[in-house]
């Protein structure tokens, strides 16, 4: 269970508040207009940004003061998820140990996770030799291997075409199911939110609202969402 308690972030004119709970294993889309604070919300959970007030709890553990790498969290960014100078296997291996001194067993796990995302035998390649979809798969293989309780995705597939995006969302659902992780995924596309098939946190007017069922939300959108979606 992920709890955001009285979170306040203020940066100049920008203000974001959040105060809600996400059930363990839930798949939650974070939806809203650009500049509303969707990525800011993820940065707070990931530990890149300390909130001005409030705290984040994961399964009862207060995350305040923990470094990003120490948090029970994996994150996939919009781009630059892979180090271009390392091989695919090394990029995934970093998820096991940042020192990359892997035992045989650990190296086998790396290979297995690559196989799981459909990239068997790609371990020796460099990111420059991969397509956009393959690079996303490598990032997800690392998330799978790290198996952290919370999985954050910050518009991870925005650069991919519609068919690939659907495919990736399916893979996200599978990885989440296998690791039992709680998913928070930022998107600006209501279609992606629907395909993720869970709940949605609406971020608008300086506030991240508590998650509600996505289908119900999209079927009967509140005024702020109507404004974002346009023609109602």
């Amino acid at each position: 269970m992920l709890a955001l308690e009285g979170i306040v972030v203020e940066q100049g004119n920008f203000r974001l508040t959040a105060d809600f709970v996400v059930e363990a294993g839930a798949r939650v889309a974070v939806l809203g207009p650009s500049g509303a604070g969707k990525s800011t919300l993820l940065s707070v959970v990931a530990g890149f940004l300390a909130p001005d007030a409030g705290r984040v709890l994961c399964d009862g553990q207060d995350l305040t003061g923990l470094e990003p790498g120490e948090r029970p969290v994996s994150i996939v960014f919009q781009d630059n998820n892979l180090f271009p100078h390392l091989t695919v296997a090394q990029n995934v291996g970093l998820g096991v140990k940042p020192s990359l001194r892997l035992s045989q067993e650990e190296a086998a796990k790396v290979e297995a996770s690559l196989k799981r995302v459909g990239l068997e035998g790609f371990g020796g390649r460099r990111p420059a030799e991969l397509s956009g979809g393959q690079a996303s798969r490598v990032a997800l293989a690392r998330v799978l291997l790290r198996a952290r309780p919370v999985m954050l995705l910050d518009e991870p597939f925005a650069a991919l075409g519609p068919a690939l995006r659907t495919e990736m969302l399916e893979l996200v659902r599978e990885v989440a199911a296998e690791t039992g992780a709680t998913v928070l995924m930022v998107t600006h596309d209501p279609g992606d939110a629907a395909r993720l098939g869970g709940q949605t946190v609406l971020v608008a007017d300086g506030m991240a609202r508590a998650p509600v069922e996505t289908q119900a939300l999209l079927a009967d959108p509140p005024p702020e969402l109507q404004e974002y979606l346009g023609a109602g």
Binding site: P68, G69, S74, L86, S99
Partner: peptide, 21 residues
């Protein structure tokens, strides 16, 4: 941020992130 999120610090960060780039 990617390095931070993976907990790459000290020698690992120097060896696998800073020096190669």
């Amino acid at each position: 941020r990617l390095g931070d999120s993976l907990g790459m610090r000290g020698w690992a960060r120097l060896r696998y992130l800073v020096l190669p780039r």
